[in-house]
Every structure is written in structure tokens, then in C-alpha cells.
Amino acid sequence: MKDLYVRVYLTNMRKYNEGQLIGGWVDVSTDTDWSKELKNFCRIGIGKDDTFGEEYFISDYETNINYLNISEYTTISELENIAEFLEFVNQNYLQDIANELIEAIGDMDIDRLTELLENEKYIYIADAGDDEKLGEYIIENNELYSSLSDDIKRYLDREAIGRDYCINNGGIYQSGNYIELLG
């Protein structure tokens, strides 16, 4: 599992309006001192006695998070929320699950994702990417089927069991896995 990351390119708005692209890359992490970063990149080309105010924007970003969109208007507060999310996910080895939940939700709602992950409000079954594989998993792991002998289990329609379970619980198949949101 690779750690999730986000980097943004902070650009000096004043110099941009004068026709120059001046700024620098900043890692989005809980260790980032945004006041210091803004002073460093927004003063570039202005002169040390000039104030920079809120004269910056984000002109580019890099990430390995599916569906993450950072705009030039993304605030420092939003970047700090993303940094806290990244720290939680990376420290708890939830990178793959986080990316799949993001895909399942269809957007990058940090607050909702954090709640789902912290409170374990999801079911994630690896390698159960279709009805038949999900049905096999259910037959082997669900207590309803545990009392059945292997001879009887052999005759069960795994595909129908998996399909019905997926439909009844609102789950989805994604990247070869099964995901169900509980909240």
C-alpha cells in the first residue's frame, strides 16, 4: 500500500497578474506551517518589505487519490482537513479502502469519508468482485450457511446468493471487491 499524498503549487497572485508564474510546491500534511509557506511563496518577487496578504492561488496539484479535485479557490482550511484525512488513512493502513470508498461515493467529501472510515461504517470484502464470488464468500462466512454440510453447499446457487445480497444491501462491485456503505 502506497501512502496517499497531495501536493499543491502555491502561486503568487500579484506576480501572476503581472505575467509571471512564481510560486512553489507544498506538501499537504499536518506538519505544514501554512503561514510560513504563504509568506515564502507569496513574497517571492515582491520584495521583503511588501506584504503578501491573501495574494495566492493554487495553480496545480499532484495526488494519488481518486476523484480529488483541488481548485485555485481551495482554502487553507480545506487543505488542512485533507491533511488530517491523509494522516488518519496512512497511519491506519486504509489507503486502498479509502480510494475505493471515494469511488463508491462518487466525490471527495472529506468529512463523510472520515466518518465512514473512523466509525467503520462500511463493509469491504476483498476479491469478491462479482455475484458469484460474493456468493461464495457469504456461503463460507455467513452463520446462516455454517450448519450446512459441504455436500449441500455444493448445490447452492452462489451467483443468485451474491446478486440478492448485493441488491438487498445496496452494495457495489468495484476494482474486484465488494463495498457496502452503512452510513
Rank of each mutant, 00 (worst) to 15 (best):
K39F: 14
K121L: 15
A83H: 04
L117V: 10
I82K: 12
S77H: 04
I167F: 04
K2P: 09
V28R: 07
D96I: 12
N69E: 04
T11F: 00
N141M: 04
L38N: 00
L113Q: 15
Y178G: 11
I102W: 13
R163F: 12
R112L: 15
C42S: 11
W34R: 10
K36N: 06
Y56R: 12
Q95F: 02
V8E: 01
N119R: 11
S175F: 13
G162E: 08
G176K: 01
N81L: 12
Y73V: 07
I58P: 09
V26E: 03
Y16K: 01
E37I: 03
I123Y: 09
D150G: 11
G162V: 13
K48F: 03
N169K: 11
D96W: 06
I82M: 12
I167Y: 05
E18R: 08
L148A: 00
G19N: 02
E143H: 08
I70V: 07
V28T: 02
Y137R: 10
S146Y: 08
E78I: 05
T75P: 05
Y145M: 05
F41Y: 15
E140G: 01
I123A: 08
E78H: 03
T32N: 05
Y93C: 05
I179F: 05
E132I: 11
K133R: 12
F85G: 08
T63C: 01
E140T: 01
E132Q: 13
A104D: 11
N142K: 05
N64S: 06
G53I: 10
N81H: 12
L116M: 13
L117W: 10
D49K: 15
G24M: 06
N169W: 02
L68V: 07
K39A: 09
N12R: 07
K2L: 07
Y67E: 14
D50I: 07
E87L: 06
M1C: 10
I179T: 09
A128N: 09
E55D: 13
L117Q: 06
A128P: 09
S147C: 13
E115C: 02
G53D: 08
S35E: 15
N40V: 14
Q95H: 02
G129Q: 09
Y173T: 03
L156Y: 08
S146L: 07
L4M: 10
L79V: 03
D96Q: 10
N12H: 03
G129E: 01
Y61R: 09
G176N: 06
C42L: 07
A128C: 14
Y56Q: 01
L113Y: 15
E136I: 07
V26R: 00
I161D: 07
R163Q: 10
E78W: 09
I123P: 10
Y67H: 12
N119F: 13
G183C: 04
L86S: 10
M1K: 05
G106Y: 08
I65F: 08
F85A: 01
M1A: 02
I22H: 00
G183P: 07
Y56E: 02
D109S: 14
L116N: 04
K39Q: 12
I110K: 12
K133N: 04
Y9E: 03
R158A: 14
G170E: 01
I102L: 14
